[in-house]
Amino acid sequence: MAKPEDLRLDHVASLARIALTPDEKVRFATQLGDVLAYVAQLNEVDVSGVEPTAHAFPVVNVWAQDIAEPGLSVEDALRNAPEKRDNMFVVPKVVE
């Protein structure tokens, strides 16, 4: 398991799309370092041959038939939009 100092805070925050202040970086590094040191105890557990649990009570083939149902009106769809135009959501220009 990775050591706490491996927490590449800038890289990870960038993957998570969160801008951190210098102060937050210092605090998070310490706090998350503590947490990582704590979770490192999972290394003690012998998990060889153990299947991971993704669902506590797994069932398979939970699906719905392909029947179209009414959705939201355009008004409702855009009701909470921070910015809208021509029935669409507006975001600052995406540079490709």
Binding site: M1, A2, I18, F28, V39, V45, V47, V50, P52, T53
Partner: peptide, 30 residues
Amino acid sequence: VKRRIILGTYVLSSGYYDAFYLRAQKVRTL
């Protein structure tokens, strides 16, 4: 919330998945 998102992003990031998430899911089984 930021702390947890960052921790969660870290444990899933490339090269760490098996050591953290997969192992935790196995411990969960135990």
